[in-house]
Design a protein around this nucleic acid. Structure first.
Length: 268
DNA sequence: ATGCCTGCGGTTCGCAGA
């Protein structure tokens, strides 16, 4: 079962790109971020025509997340608990019925998340980012107690390590590379989550984002900020992880590319 | 030091992104 995360940077501007990629890669579940659309304007019919169920959590103009799945949703939960005043659409969870490699049935939980950017450091956006990450850690710790396969997939807006950037020195004053941001991501690992890309490769230079500006793609001036964090049960069933760089070279690309984890589950 | 480029909203420039 292939589970992907992709910051699409505007689903309506990217619909041709998305349809091409879905047809091509045939992922089972796709977590999307920055759909930049309200639910009513989400281009669901084109996607449903490819055999996907579609659940969205949109917002006017900015942010917004969605989950596409070849399996039907058993449950959908929107909004990260812990702050009823937070109106930004950055979190949704889908629950599915699957079987593991031995045929045992289990629930599979998949989260699509879009963490705050947090720049500039020194503005109120940075504490919002850290506060959001603290709420997310608390929610994740709670979910871990279920001892179920759980995939936290999304745009974390955090560069974990220097080897996750082509030029780490230019990021030292950026919210994406602050010790507090990196520490909050590392807390998920200390709780027991596994970075699906990193557990499969020690190589530097695995990137998921290249800025539109200054020829970043052509210079391979990228960063790795889109992550799939796996609960122990999910990590035990990880077969492989890949980054689909091809789409960054397509016409009218998103500045992010899909990251895909292949887990040893099948639809129940 | 700043813009570079792109999507969106709501009108053609401002904001946000990373």
């Amino acid at each position: 079962m292939k589970i992907a995360t992709w910051n699409i940077n505007g689903v309506r501007a990217r619909i041709d790109n998305l349809i091409q990629w879905l047809s091509d890669a045939s992922p089972d579940i796709v977590c999307m971020q920055e759909i930049k659309s309200v639910d009513e304007n989400f281009p669901r019919f084109e996607i449903e025509a490819l055999g996907y169920h579609v659940e969205t959590h949109g917002q006017k103009g900015f942010n917004g997340v969605a989950i596409l799945s070849k399996m039907r949703f058993d449950e959908v939960n929107r909004r990260l608990p812990g702050d009823d005043g937070d109106e930004q659409a950055r979190f949704m969870e889908g629950v599915f019925s699957v079987r593991d490699a031995k045929g045992r049935p289990t629930a599979l939980r998949v989260v699509s998340l879009y963490l705050p950017n947090g720049n500039p450091v020194g503005s109120d956006k940075f504490p919002y980012k850290l506060g959001w990450m603290a709420r997310f850690e608390a929610w994740s710790a709670d979910r871990l107690m279920l001892e179920e396969p759980l995939v936290l997939a999304g745009d974390y807006n955090v560069i974990p390590q220097p080897e996750d950037a082509k030029n780490p020195e230019v990021w030292v004053n950026d919210a994406l590379f602050q010790p507090e941001s990196r520490g909050a991501l590392r807390k998920l690992e200390s709780l027991g989550f596994t970075d699906a890309v990193r557990v499969c490769s020690d190589s530097p230079g695995i990137y998921t984002f290249w800025d539109y500006q200054a020829g970043a793609w052509q210079k391979n001036n990228g960063i790795r900020i889109d992550h799939l964090m796996l609960s122990p049960e999910a990590a035990d069933n990880l077969r492989a992880t890949s980054v689909d760089k091809r789409v960054r070279a397509w016409e009218k690309p998103s500045d992010h590319v899909p990251v895909i984890a292949d887990l040893a589950y099948e639809a129940a």
